[in-house]
Structures are given as structure tokens and as C-alpha cells.
């Protein structure tokens, strides 16, 4: 860019405050891990990122790309809006397993979260399914369910007496 001296400066020197819709465009380019860091910068960023409409936009955007969520104990869950896969490590390589095929992952760059906030809580869980970015896991032993939705807090519920599946919405 050419560097002629600036004309009348319309803003406070050094200021880089952008309108919310522009910041939203920038934030939408980041994965959840980076967004979690951005939340800690200032109040307005925290509000913008945890705002329901931002979360919806981010989910809509990421579900078209497919997200990979790392779970400990050799299980990785890959979820997209339309498909669910299991992803298992196999001799230093991850193998994507769908119902019908075993696929290698040359082009897939897993956004691995090394230490998810809920790591220790996911020892014995199976992926039940996902919808609109909400991932549902079921505990193998007591059949309780947890729902995970992006950067918003983890919610877990205990099973009802008759073990029927409860429906909750994470907000």
C-alpha cells in the first residue's frame, strides 16, 4: 500500500475499534479454541462471542466444514450437520470410520483440542448424535446424557427413571 502521509485523522490515534458487524466477520474466521481466548480480551468481545446470534452463525459456518472434537481414551468425534462419524487413532494416524467406509484423512486437518475443558468427564461416553452443532453424548454406565455446544458451557443431565431420552436445549 502506498505510504503518503495521512490526511486528516478521523479517529483517536492508535484506535482500532471496529463496528460489531465487522468484528463478527473477523471472529467468524476463528475456531472455537481461539474464540475462547478472544473472550478474555475485553467485555465487549466476550459479549459478542457469546451472543446467541454469533453462536448460531459460527455453528452454521462450522457445520458446513465439519468440526472435530477430541475426546480422551482414543475416541474422537467428528460431527457435521448431516453426518456423524467415529474417528479413531490407528498407528499414529487418525482413521475416519463411517458406517460403510474407512476413510483416510489426507485433507482433513483435525482441529485437535488437546485439553478440552471436560476431558476428565468424558471417560466413558458414546456419541449419540449431533444436530445444529449440539453434540449429544451418553454415559455407558449410568446412561446420563451430556450436551456440548461450541464455546458455551457444558451441560449434563441425569437420566430420568425410565431411561427415556430427555431433551434439553443448551443456551
Amino acid at each position: 500500500m502506498n505510504r503518503v502521509s495521512r490526511g486528516r485523522d478521523m479517529r483517536r490515534k492508535g484506535d482500532f475499534s471496529l463496528p460489531d458487524d465487522v468484528m463478527t466477520d473477523i471472529f467468524l474466521r476463528f475456531p472455537i479454541k481461539k474464540l475462547a481466548q478472544l473472550r478474555c480480551v475485553c467485555q465487549s468481545w466476550n459479549q459478542l462471542i457469546t451472543n446467541q446470534s454469533f453462536v448460531e452463525s459460527h455453528i452454521n459456518q462450522s457445520t458446513s466444514k465439519a468440526c472435530i472434537l477430541y475426546l480422551p481414551h482414543c475416541l474422537l468425534g467428528l460431527y457435521s450437520e448431516t453426518q456423524e462419524f467415529g474417528l479413531y487413532p490407528k498407528t499414529n494416524q487418525f482413521v475416519l470410520v463411517s458406517k460403510t467406509n474407512e476413510l483416510s484423512l489426507p485433507d482433513l486437518k483435525p482441529a485437535k483440542i488437546c485439553n478440552p475443558p471436560f476431558a476428565t468427564e468424558l471417560m466413558d461416553w458414546n456419541i449419540i448424535g449431533s444436530c445444529n452443532g449440539v453434540l449429544c453424548l451418553c454415559n455407558n454406565s449410568d446412561r446420563s446424557l451430556i450436551y456440548i455446544r461450541g464455546i458455551l458451557p457444558l451441560t449434563s443431565i441425569q437420566p430420568s427413571q425410565d431411561h427415556s431420552v430427555n431433551t434439553i436445549y443448551v443456551t
Binding site: 479454541k33 481461539k34 475462547a36 481466548q37 473472550r39 478474555c40 466476550n46 483440542i113 488437546c114 485439553n115 478440552p116 475443558p117 476431558a119 458451557p153
Partner: peptide, 13 residues
């Protein structure tokens, strides 16, 4: 800030 950092600790590791 401490609370928020704690909540998002995983993202900084």
C-alpha cells in the same frame, strides 16, 4: 478476568 480465564483455561494450553 480470573473466572473467565479459568473457564477458558483449556484454550490457553
Amino acid at each position: 478476568e480470573d473466572a473467565l480465564r479459568k473457564e477458558n483455561q483449556w484454550a490457553f494450553e
